[in-house]
Design a protein around this nucleic acid. Structure first.
Length: 465
RNA sequence: GGCGCGGUAGCAAAGUGGUAAUGCUGUGGACUGCAACUCCGCCAUCGUCGGUUCGAUUCCGACCCGCGCCUCCA
């Protein structure tokens, strides 16, 4: 029973062997907090949260860090537009991010480092990189150039290993104008000067702020160590962000390996198109949460393999909701059954998760387990329920009370539970009187209010649907 | 131009060298006063063309189609 993960670095699946099995380390790139996050930001959070849960079944201690980038030009721009204090703005959106992620049943990472709280560590790393000849600062007194510190990519032999590019290739397709002060076109910024009206910190190279890639390297070094087990993020971060992180960290540590396994989740598209400003098709998590339970979003994300592209759309969300209704429906009939604690290590679902986080397979097994529970009798019932909930729990699914699940608001103006119960009582009286027409009128009335009735031997259950 | 990914039922999505999980939808039936839920059944030959093989959706090659990245977008 061992974990296998796909490593972007080697472009193959490989057995996971932690550097220190007493302390497994994982770092995932978090959001830049200048806006509410969209569903694409939620994917890595859900995927790596699931991996975190799985790792916790295998190792006694897992250190999972997910950063908050709270200093960035986009934040500065937004703050200026809104006339809001930068730190207030970033704090507001960081909290919004936490709220959104919690709504998707993501556990809190063990460490949530903020970029602005690690400026000394970043400056220290830049200084070391300069000392070791991997970086240089621009000290020519020219306005707009003075105060930059750049990483010299040519100083690193295997720069480009993660993204599989040679330096020549990178420059051949470059779409961006090269700043003239760079010694080499591919060099990237470690530290940049701040104008008086911009946020900045004093440094040996003048008042300025860190480049984007630097914060992750510095925070990983501080909280997780020079070498970590797993580094994750979206596929788009492979180049340049992760490539540059590797450059910074490896060179600061004299060539020590940085992350053993690099994992990258695929993109989420909307109705077949990439989310983009020009298309105006961003789907913000908090907007979706007004129409769908967070668990539906999570189920959708987990219903595709994390490395593949996923196409978000209304059909998918509705379908996921129906699927969860079925699963919760089974659990609802066993609400009085006490789930037994069980060993899931030999289950197909667990094996699927260990196989590079094959969540679609695991969800498939989840449905089989639900059906097994549905068919189980006697002493097998608590065991079957235990298995179902344990596997589901590894994916952050099916953890709420089924009764509450079915009475969750599904958007629109909801009739209160008391009113529903009153109408059900009225209908049951009509049924008792053999006034089926009258009973159907009530049921139809409820249906129009978004409430579906289910008669059973134990009485009438209802759900919003 | 460089690097990389993908094309499986109406939709979504796994998977395997020996004729394809699972969910949603649709559909036939059972159950039900009627429904709903649930249960039983049905609905694909895996982009195209070749090759390797006893046998390929799964390996190799070509082609067609779609997509991503190439300096700050998860």
């Amino acid at each position: 029973m061992s974990l296998t993960l796909y490593n972007t670095l080697t472009r193959s699946k490989q057995p996971f062997e932690p550097i220190d099995s007493e302390r497994v380390t994982m770092y995932v790139c978090g959001p830049t907090v200048y806006n509410r996050v969209h569903i694409g930001n939620a994917r890595p959070a859900v995927v790596f949260d699931t991996l975190y849960r799985v790792l916790n079944t295998l190792y006694p201690k897992v250190e999972y860090a997910r950063n908050i980038t709270d200093i960035d030009d986009k934040i500065m721009k937004t703050a200026a537009e809104l006339g809001e204090n930068i730190s207030a703005l970033s704090a507001r959106y960081a909290q919004a991010y936490f709220d959104d992620m919690a709504a998707l049943n993501n556990l809190s990472p063990t460490i949530v480092p903020y970029a602005t709280q690690h400026i000394p560590e970043m400056i220290n790393m830049v200084a070391r990189l300069i000392d070791k000849g991997h970086a240089y600062n621009i000290d020519n007194g020219i306005e707009g150039e003075q105060g930059h510190v750049l990483f010299a990519v040519q100083s690193m032999a295997d720069y480009g290993a993660l993204s599989g590019r040679s330096l020549d290739d990178m420059l051949a397709g470059a779409r961006v104008e090269v700043a003239s002060y760079k010694k080499y076109a591919g060099d990237f910024v470690l530290w940049k000067p701040s104008a008086d009206n911009e946020p900045g910190w004093d440094s040996p190279w003048g008042r300025g702020r860190p480049g984007w890639h630097l914060e992750c390297s510095a925070m990983i070094e501080k909280h997780l160590g020079d070498s970590i087990d797993i580094h994750g993020g979206g596929q788009d971060l492979i180049f340049p962000h992760h490539e540059n992180e590797i450059a910074q960290s490896c060179c600061a540590h004299d060539g020590k390996p940085f992350a053993n396994i690099w994992m990258h989740n695929g993109f989420i598209n909307i109705e077949g198109e990439k989310m983009s400003k020009s298309l105006g098709n961003f789907r913000m998590v908090n907007d979706l949460l007004e129409q769908y339970p967070g668990e539906v979003l999570r189920y959708v994300i987990l219903s595709a393999h994390y490395r593949s592209e996923q196409n978000f759309g209304k059909d998918l969300l509705d379908s996921a909701w129906r699927s969860l209704d079925t699963l919760y429906g089974f659990l609802r009939t066993q609400n009085d059954t006490q789930a037994a604690s069980v060993d899931i290590s030999d289950s197909d679902a667990y094996s699927a998760l260990l196989d590079d986080l094959n969540t679609p397979m695991a969800i498939s097994e989840l449905h089989k387990l639900a059906r097994e529970m549905h068919c189980a009798e006697g002493a097998n019932l608590p065991l079957a329920k235990g298995r179902l909930l344990a596997i589901a729990g590894l994916m952050g699914l099916l953890q709420q009370n089924p009764e509450e699940w079915f009475t969750l608001s599904r958007g629109g103006d909801d009739i209160s539970a008391e009113q529903v119960e009153a109408l059900i009582a009225k209908r049951n009286q009509a049924k008792a009187d053999k006034d089926y027409a009258g009973a159907d009128v009530v049921r139809e009335e409820l249906k129009l209010l978004g409430v579906v009735l289910e008669d059973s031997r134990e009485g009438t259950k209802w759900r919003r649907g």
